[in-house]
Amino acid sequence: MKLLFTLFLVSFSCLASSQTQQLKVVYNYINHAKPNTYQMELQAKNDQVFSYTIRLTKSGAGKNIRYKQTTDSTKLFKDYESGFMIYEERLGRDYHVVKEKLDLFKWQLNTKVDTLLGYPCKTAFAEFRGREYQAFYTTELPFTAAPWKLHGLPGVMLRIQTIDDVLIFDAQSIEILDKTKAIYNPFAHYDPIDYEDFCKHYKSYRKEVIKKRNQRAKQQNRPAPKNDKAPRVEVIIPENRFILND
């Protein structure tokens, strides 16, 4: 009887510990499609993950260059229990909250093994909306988490890069904190749209942008700019790389 009681206390203690532990990962976020420097912070607890982008601005010159954080941020919240993620998208001055299923990545596992920040990592590859991604993930942490829209691997993704090196997430620090509060969901009171609706908004937005650029070029007596490629990491589906002549 005493043995059963002891086992119960140990099991309860482990469960309580897992419910209070929270993961924090800070990534260097490099997006070669944009000139600014970014960081991304990730928080994970139980079945929820919240990540947000922090833009860094550069000041000074030479050895005196310094970076400071700005307040603008792109937020994304994942709930693995419900199987959905919710995130923000800005089109000009318009703000949209979008909801998608957490079934977008179909990973092919690789036998290559590496070590990042002292954690052994496995690798995997996946294609997603116009680009191929390579991920380095560890199963040595008691969490399932990844930055941005990335998901679908059994562990914590510590480095993700596109094969064309346009996008890189590279973990710089890992902390496991004792937190009693649940992960913050900034979209709890929003009514999100689905991805197909967002694509429609984006198509209208891009057509308007192209129209204004063409008008400006005509006024300045110069050739119209080329508009056949998307200025985004993702290729918006079903648009074929934004050839918007139809």
Rank of each mutant, 00 (worst) to 15 (best):
L3V: 06
L3C: 04
L4W: 08
F8H: 06
V10F: 15
S13N: 08
A16C: 09
S18Q: 11
S18N: 08
L23D: 06
L23Q: 07
V26N: 14
V26S: 10
A33W: 12
Y38H: 11
M40T: 14
L42N: 05
A44Q: 08
N46D: 11
N46K: 15
V49Q: 03
L56M: 15
K58G: 06
A61F: 10
R66W: 01
K68E: 12
Q69R: 15
T70D: 04
T70C: 01
D72W: 09
T74V: 07
F77M: 04
K78E: 08
D79A: 07
Y80C: 08
E81T: 10
S82G: 01
G83T: 04
E88P: 01
G92R: 14
Y95H: 15
Y95W: 11
K99A: 11
K99T: 09
E100W: 07
D103E: 11
Q108L: 04
D114K: 02
L116G: 02
Y119P: 08
P120D: 05
K122V: 00
T123H: 11
F125I: 15
E127W: 04
E127S: 14
F128P: 00
G130H: 10
E132L: 05
E132P: 00
E132H: 07
Y133M: 06
F136V: 00
T138G: 01
T139C: 04
E140M: 09
L141G: 03
L150P: 03
H151T: 05
H151D: 09
G152K: 06
L153W: 03
G155E: 09
M157K: 01
M157N: 02
L158A: 05
Q161Y: 06
T162F: 07
V166D: 06
I174T: 09
K181Y: 00
P186F: 12
A188P: 00
P192H: 04
D197C: 07
D197L: 13
D197W: 05
F198P: 03
K200H: 12
Y202P: 00
Y202T: 05
Y202A: 09
Y205M: 05
R206I: 13
V209Q: 14
K211G: 04
K211E: 13
R213M: 14
R216I: 03
R216T: 09
R222C: 06
P225A: 04
D228R: 08
A230M: 10
R232K: 06
V233H: 09
I236V: 15
P238C: 10
F242Q: 11
F242K: 08
I243Q: 14
D246V: 02
D246C: 08
D246S: 05
